[in-house]
Amino acid sequence: MRISRDKLNKLAHTVADTLAEIDEVEFKEDRNTIRQEARKAMEQELLEEMKIDAAARKKIESQRKIILEGSQEWDILYRKYYTDEVKKLGIDH
């Protein structure tokens, strides 16, 4: 999934603002640093997601027969290959 930079920044602001409202949370850095780190973490997660998606799609494309995206067979294979890639990377999704 691709998210625009503006939306990612908006999400990061929301994360920092929400954390600041929680009494049990104490920032050791300023709010802007927290926001930037939240944005970096989300960017990294989205990058991993894109890599997993690309690997699953590549496996489907490598099949001997053509499997149309959106078909039930494609969806089943995509979920299987996506899950396989997640397991291979040791990511808990």
Rank of each mutant, 00 (worst) to 15 (best):
R2H: 09
R2E: 13
I3Q: 09
S4V: 07
S4E: 02
R5D: 13
D6N: 08
N9T: 12
N9G: 02
N9M: 01
K10T: 04
L11N: 04
L11C: 04
L11S: 07
A12W: 03
H13W: 00
H13I: 06
D17T: 05
I22P: 02
D23A: 08
V25W: 07
E26S: 13
F27K: 06
K28E: 13
D30S: 08
D30M: 01
T33M: 05
I34L: 12
R35H: 00
R35M: 11
R35Y: 02
A38N: 03
M42K: 11
E43G: 05
E45N: 10
L46R: 07
L47C: 03
L47H: 11
E48Q: 13
E49Y: 11
M50C: 02
K51L: 11
I52W: 08
I52G: 11
D53S: 15
K58L: 08
K58P: 00
K59Q: 14
I60Y: 10
E61P: 04
E61C: 04
K65T: 12
E69S: 12
G70W: 03
G70Q: 07
E73T: 12
D75N: 15
L77Q: 11
Y78E: 03
Y78F: 15
R79I: 06
Y81K: 07
Y82H: 15
T83E: 14
T83L: 12
V86I: 14
K87F: 02
K88Y: 06
D92K: 14
D92M: 04
H93G: 02
